[in-house]
Nucleic acid binder design. Structure first.
Lengths: 348, 348
DNA sequence: ATGAAAGCGCTAACAA
DNA sequence: TTGTTAGCGCTTTCAT
């Protein structure tokens, strides 16, 4: 290993001078010395030791990317193109600014906190955490911390940095799209029923759906909200599938809160002789492979995951640089309606 | 920050003793002291500093996960469920053994090497690298290094650790499956034509296809290999799509080298009124979402990506522990045929 | 413009 | 069984 001492010897200067050159503190170094030192670094192939730097400088240039690992129908949170797209985008941003990315699943918050301390990371980017984990994390560290799709209790939102979606607006827009195509009886379909009650993206999307219907004088009753049950409960989902078959006549369109569920139900319906969109229309939310690969492709609200990652990373890096939460720390990205072939236009 | 000095003071011992307790060197520490020290660590919430440890111990407990970032039809290597599943599995293994995972895209090998040195990582896991990058990496570092799906020139295979698939056997098995269902005129379909010539998974799968056909006295001519062109060239792919329509009569089945391409072509065919498997059968390779979500679901060879990641991680960790390449350093995992609905059984 | 010296938190060889 | 000491590579303060 080549150290600054080696460079100093090679260049015939003290290692303080080398350090100064490395950090661009040129004010007190002569032109000639700079060149000699830089030559020596090139020649010997000097690479700084992060351990040594970290030890003395109290910073690490390390970003922790912490993800929850909820079970999404047999796969973990990370085992999904959403996660990898996000991670990829974050890695790029982070690396472009000479930071490094440490990846960590959050089994329990303790482990994460221990990692944060032991490596003295400069900041934490968290996604897929439960509200509980998020809260705990927030309260246990004063490191710069940015959430992606964080879920907060009312009133706590402003306390931390977050990058999410304008879910309510998007939910309303999607509903309006259906209404414009002649649909009135539009069910809101989701996986976990609890998500309708607790704060979060699902609930927001539902509130958008409600608001749009309300605008047209439609007040959905409770049975307009169809719950499939959590990802991890295939039995219950199956029951919901069949229950839906009995109720198809009640609706002209189904608004699924996410594409994965939409694709699942779409395939179920097709397999059971229901024509989509001939017999019923449906739309999803997210704009991922599930929507893209289904036939017909699912009409959906597309979110730009790459952008989400970029923005979250930039927010965090700014947070770190300023050592203060940026003013615009609560970002809600808009979505784009992406037409597939699952929506029929109804005759008046 | 709590240091071992603080612990030493709190427990009323020297910090060497603390260090000894931390590392379980109990031989020379009295029972009572151990307990006092452990008490103090709990009470003060001691967390070791990796910087300090790394500086003195010359190891980091850091694994670099390096991935190439080839363009797969508009998305990068990482932006795919394959990558995230792999990463997730690796992270788990690594963390279970108290190692940490550093993620790094490989734009150029220099950057990776610099990262490896600057953090003094204990080992490197590489996937999605080009043969060139792989070779360069191998020659530039003597750190423990394990490839996933590495591609090597003949003769160089034994020089490094790799976890891949038994592609040739799987290719043959798939072809035999088709033959057993009455198919004889089976085309081999791939994206990048160059992959048929250079060593690698695609070529291996093709060789398996050839071998199986050969067993039945069938010698495919060159035009039995259909090339769609690289992912990044949609124009050319489109042309290939239409060219295929003209030649459908030449084959009863198409063996696609990967599911993504298979799904693309399947959808193209369906959109143009070709019935699958009525008019033509097709199969894919990988067993990912593309195969699963298509309708009909694509019959494919499923690879267990999670297992791939686990095994690669374990191999690397063993490599690190032993500080020598494990004997079984060339793993070829088998695949499993996964039936979908894209293969018809032909009447004799 | 350059250098000497102290010290970051920790490990390990050696001393007591 | 416990403590002392040196030193890992680097940054930073203070002298020169």
């Amino acid at each position: 290993m080549v150290t600054i001492k080696d460079i100093a010897r090679e260049a015939g200067v003290s290692f303080t001078t080398v350090s100064n050159v490395i950090h661009g503190r040129y004010q007190h170094v002569s032109r000639a010395t700079i060149e000699r030192v830089e030559r020596a670094m090139k020649d010997l192939g000097y690479v700084p030791s992060m351990s040594a730097r970290g030890l003395v400088s109290r910073t690490s240039r390390l970003i922790a990317l912490a993800y929850g690992h909820r079970d999404l129908g047999g796969r973990t949170m990370l085992e999904d193109a959403f996660a990898s797209t996000l991670v990829g985008a974050v890695e790029r941003e982070v690396r472009a600014r000479q930071y490094y990315l440490m990846l960590s699943a959050v089994q329990n918050t303790e482990d994460l906190l221990q990692m944060v301390s032991t490596w003295n990371v400069d900041g934490v980017l968290a996604f897929g955490l439960s509200p509980k984990e998020g809260k705990l994390l927030r309260e246990s560290t004063d490191k710069p911390l940015v959430f992606v799709d964080g879920v907060f209790l009312p009133g706590e939102e402003e306390l931390c940095a977050n990058v999410g979606l304008a879910d309510r607006a998007a939910g309303a827009e999607m509903t309006q799209y259906l209404i414009a195509r002649g649909h009135r009886r539009i069910a809101f379909c989701c996986g976990d029923g609890a998500a309708l009650v607790r704060p979060g993206a699902t609930r927001e999307r539902m509130l958008g759906w409600e608001a749009a219907l309300h605008q047209w004088g439609i007040e959905p009753t409770d049975n307009w909200r169809i719950v499939w049950g959590p990802d991890a409960d295939p039995e219950r989902r199956k029951a919901a599938d069949f229950a839906l078959l009995e109720r198809l006549g009640d609706f002209t369109a189904l608004f699924f809160e996410n594409d994965m569920l939409a694709a699942h139900v779409l395939n179920f319906l097709l397999d059971h002789g229901v024509r989509v969109p001939g017999d019923i229309s449906l739309v999803g939310f997210d704009g991922n492979d599930y929507a893209r690969l289904s036939r017909p492709a699912i009409t959906t609200m597309r979110q730009d995951v790459r952008r989400k990652g970029e923005i979250a990373a930039r927010l965090l890096l700014q947070y770190i640089t300023d050592n203060a939460m940026p003013t615009e720390h609560n970002v809600r990205l808009s979505c784009q309606l992406q037409e597939g072939g699952t929506v029929a236009t109804l005759k008046p």
